[in-house]
Structures are given as C-alpha cells and as structure tokens.
Design a protein around this nucleic acid. Structure first.
Length: 527
RNA sequence: GGUCCGUUCGUCUAGGGGUUAGGACACCAGAUUUUCAUUCUGGUAACAGGGGUUCGAUUCCCCUACGGACUACCA
C-alpha cells in the first residue's frame, strides 16, 4: 500500500524527462507472424513519433524451442517492411548483448536479490509432483489449481523445508527453480495506455517460476530485468500479455524499480477472418492468405509457408494495411507513407477490440500503391519476368505495356500473367466469345482490314483505328458488333486494354499474322 | 471452470447525452467505354439484449448474452 500514493507521480515525472525507448522482443521459434510484425510496427511508429529509439531483443530463453534461421528471418522481415532498428544483436548498441541467452549470467543475481528480500524462494518439486498437485486440486474442485500462497505450503520448497536441507539440496546440485512469492491478498493495479486501469487480485496470480532448473530465466524475469537495464520507457505488446502484466508490476516493485517502470500498452489481437480465435503461426496458408511477411520453409518439416513479399505485396502497401488493423488516424485519409504514419500515430487512437483479418483490404492497398508507381518502375516488374520466357523487350515497350495494364492488376506478377499476349500470339481463343461474336461478315471485314494495314504510312493507334472504322463502314458494320471478335483474334481473351493501343504495340506484321491465324482457326464460327 | 479484456454496417472503423450515426473495403445498380478493369454517381447495410441515471442514451452506470486472451520450469 505504501507504494501507491507517490509511485505513479514519481514515475510520471521521471518518464517525462526520459528519452522514449521501446523494444520489440520476439523469440526465435519460427517465422515471425503478421501480428508480430504489427507489434513491431506500432513500436517503431511510436518511437519515431516521440523522437525516441527502438531496439530489438531476442528472447531465446527456451533453448528447447530454438529454430535455426528464425532470427535471420526476423531481421529480414523488418528490413523488408522498412522498420529500422536503432539497437539489436546485429546493429549493436550500448546495452549489448541483445540476445537473452548471451545475457544469461546476469539474471541469477536479480533472482537471488528477490530470494534474499523474501520475495522469492527455491522450489525442488519435480514435474510429477507438480502434476500430482494439480490433479489433487482439480479433484477437490478447486477453481484455479495453482502454485500459490496456499499450496506452496504443501510443496517442496525453501519455505517448507528445514533450512539445512535446503542448503544441502542446493549444494548437492539438485535441480531447483526460483519462484516468485506472490502475496496472498493484495490488489495489483496497472495503468494500460489503451485500456485504462486494470485491477487484478494477487490471489489470481500464481507463484511464477523466475529461474528455470537449467539456469535460464523465464520470460517474466528476463523481460523485466532487460527492460529495466535497457532503459525501456514503454512496453507495447500483444493483449495476450495482459493477464501476466500485474505479475510484472510486482516484479518491478520487489526489485525496487517501480519509479522507472515502463508504461504498458496492450494491443488488441489480430483475429482469424471468421473471428474465431487469434491468428496463429500454425495457420500457415490454411486461411487462404499468408500469415508471414516472407516465405518460410520450416527447417525440420520442410513445410513451406507463403509470404506477403513473394505473393507480390509491396512493403508500403503491406505496412499501410497493417497499420490500419487496430489503429486509425481519425481522419478520412487512407493512404499513408511510413513518414506520414509516424506523423499521425498515437497510442490513444489504437482500438480496444480484437481485429479480424481481411485480406481483401490488403489487395486494395496493393492496387493503390502499384498504380501510384511511375511506369518506368512498373516496367521493371514486367521486364524481370521476360528472360525466363525467353522474350526480349525494350524498356520503352515495357513501359507502354504496363501503362496500359496498371489499372487492372493487383500484383507485379500480374503484368506478365495478364499481358502475355503482347509478346506471344494466342494459341487458343475464348470459345464462348468466338461462338457468339465471330461471323462471316466480321471475318470478311477483318481480312480487308488486314490487307490494307500495309498501306498505312504511319502505324499507330489512331491511324489503325481510322482504317478500321473506314473498313467497317464500307461493310455496313458497327464497331460494337465486331470489336470483341477482333480482340479475340488478336489476344485470344475477352478482356484487356484499348485494342488499338495493343495493335500499335504488337506492330503491323504481328497484327497481320494474328488476323491470318484467326481467320483460319475461327473459320468454323463464320457460318 | 477461474481471472482479465472486449462488443457501432458483412469487415476495418469515426463519432459521442439531442447527428439524416460519417468514411473505407466488399457487395449491388446506373453512367462512361470497343470488352474487362479503371473512373464517376447512387444504393443496401450497424450502435448485442435488458435494466437504470436523464427531459432525452448508441454515448454514462449495472446486469445478462456473446466473443477473445490467459490459466507451463513457452514466450
């Protein structure tokens, strides 16, 4: 109780003069998933908005879950997203090392400090004994079976065992853990920047393990020690941490760090599209969209999961989309560059409720960003796809093509997929449209058109169109009656940009050849 | 089960004691067009339910329902 009156005020004063420092602290247990990327993004936006620093810390205290390549994947993902780190295991920094496994020696001191102060204790219970305890409590219909102020009295720990036996066990190298001695009854309050005051009774918390028997700290101890040592001012993390946040407050208090305790902001979760549970790594591609920023190959199972990058999402679009999942600027503006996001960002405008994931919106953002790019840049996407097709194309020609196609693509790879007819004559025709639109009259007109193409002194969309109209008029045909047929003849498909522009790009000779081919291949419909 | 968090159109959300409850995506219709797409115009569509407080509640309070998270020597 004695802390409650002044601590918040002191903390407030203290934090006001501190440089904002936030951290993103993933564990390298696999690919970083999209929810993690959003957490990283919000941390980054907040840090930059406040003129502060963002660091990345690898939380690898569970050696059994280490996955090779995961750490590299995290860095590559953040880099692709444009989230820049000020300090990290690879960027270095004043608080190195930034991998908890490399910081291992420093945690025990703090755990022992807690033991000495009477806020933690040694426990020697085996896994079997813990199971038995939980079974017993369950059988006795105890609402929450946990290692706590009541049950600790029945277990093997330094609070129940005689002092000399505890000493003997420790000296003989018997495995032990250090547990936090959570008070029996005490209200623990914490102020969350998104949710306001959250109150939890200490009886709902159990005596969490702080140091594991392998000598590694658990997340709970390690994150408090490191956040304190690294000068973290704001902890922005997922809502799944909210239930254990009071425990963390207790740790700050017992370690004597309450006056510089970071402020907390627990982010609403990213939910599956049906709202049924949070988006998880294990969802892979099951939901019909990637849950990872980059493609990921599981090093053990070899299972491949698709990524946003490889699917054709632009990092700017991906980030803009992600930023709006749970946050909004309160204005009508939808499109934001990273700089604009930083400028507009505030934690107060983060929503409270879980956010369902909607891939449709991500596609829309991608289209917007794609269309905003200059043709010279878009041309690179098309050009990049051509060598493997064994096709040569000048940058100027590619530019013209993407200029015509950009309004109708969602991803960069669509340029080749949707526009291959600029390079390759159709080998088959849309039969439905052919059956409906091809006619003897049309075919006749096309033949004349084809034969007169050679007479044009200038060959471009305008002159070609003029010629076509002339031929059609001579044959008593309307443009609407035959255009679809001509489109099929030249491209094979029913949809696409302005046909005359297509003709201009594929050129006179190719146009003549394609009409010839169509006249013979589609003759069956000319009845 | 227990603890905690949440609930405005199908989805993301704005708003906030008196509003025609606003926008975006998606969807539908019309216009333009040589097709499709784009673009433009218009449209369908929401305050979970019940109690209070109040002249008045979607907004504040309580309860219920529903949803979610957590409940490891994992993070």
């Amino acid at each position: 109780m004695k802390y409650c009156t002044f601590a918040p005020l002191l903390k407030h004063l203290h934090n006001m003069e501190r440089e904002v420092r936030v951290r993103f602290a993933p564990s390298p247990t696999g690919a970083l998933h999209i929810g993690g990327v959003r957490t990283a993004l919000y941390n980054y936006l907040f840090a930059k908005k406040m003129g502060g620093k963002m660091l990345l810390r690898i939380e690898d205290t569970d050696q059994t879950r280490f996955v090779p390549g995961a750490e590299q994947y995290i860095f590559e993902s953040l880099e692709w997203c444009g989230i820049k780190l000020d300090e990290s295991p690879i960027h270095g920094g004043p608080h190195a090392p930034y991998r908890q496994s490399e910081r291992k020696p420093m945690y025990m001191d703090y755990a022992l400090q807690l033991v000495e102060a009477g806020h933690a204790y040694y426990a020697f219970d085996t896994a079997e004994e813990l199971d038995a305890m939980r079974e017993r409590l369950k059988a006795a219909k105890v609402a929450t079976p946990q290692y706590n102020a009541i049950t600790r009295a029945t277990m093997k720990n330094s609070l129940t065992l005689p002092e000399d036996e505890v000493k003997r066990r420790l000296e003989s190298g018997e495995p032990y853990v250090i547990r936090l001695k959570v008070p029996r009854k005490e209200e623990v309050r914490l102020k969350d920047m998104i949710r306001g005051w959250v109150m939890v009774h200490s009886s709902a918390l159990d005596d969490k393990v702080l140091m594991k028997s392998d000598g590694m700290p658990t997340y709970h101890l390690a994150n408090i020690v490191d956040d304190h040592l690294m000068g973290i001012t704001h902890v922005i993390r997922g809502e799944e941490w909210l239930p254990s946040a009071p425990l963390h407050v207790l740790l700050y208090r017992y370690l004597g760090w309450e006056d510089t305790m970071p402020e907390f902001a627990h982010l609403p979760l990213l939910l599956k599209p049906d709202g049924n549970g949070k988006l998880s790594k294990r969802d892979g591609d099951k939901l019909g969209f990637p849950v990872f920023p980059l493609r990921w190959v599981d090093p053990v199972s070899g299972e491949v999961s698709s990524g946003y990058r490889e699917s054709g999402y632009l990092p700017e679009a991906f980030i803009n989309f992600l930023a709006f999942l749970g946050w909004n600027p309160g204005t009508q503006q939808e499109l934001f560059t990273m700089e604009e996001l930083i400028e507009a960002f505030s934690i107060e405008r983060i929503g409270k409720s879980g956010t369902r994931f909607d891939i449709q919106k991500a596609r829309w953002y991608n289209e917007q960003y794609l269309r905003a790019k200059p043709d010279t840049e878009l041309a690179q996407y098309l050009l990049a796809a051509l060598p493997e097709q064994d096709i040569a194309c000048s940058p100027e020609r590619a530019e013209k093509i993407v200029g015509l196609m950009k309004e109708r693509v969602t991803f960069p790879q669509d340029f080749w997929k949707e526009a291959s007819y600029f390079f390759v004559a159709p080998t088959q025709y849309n039969e439905q449209v052919a059956a409906k639109k091809w006619s003897a009259a049309a075919a006749g007109a096309f033949e004349q058109f084809r034969n007169e193409l050679g007479s044009l002194t200038e060959f471009n969309a305008d002159t070609v169109k003029a010629l076509l109209l002339q031929v059609l008029e001579r044959n008593g045909l309307k443009i609407g009656q035959v255009m679809q047929a001509l489109r099929i003849a030249l491209t094979g498909v029913e949809a696409g940009p302005d046909l005359m522009a297509i003709i201009e790009i594929i050129g006179r000779e190719e146009t003549e050849q394609r009409i010839d081919a169509a006249l013979s291949k589609l003759a069956q419909y000319a009845a």
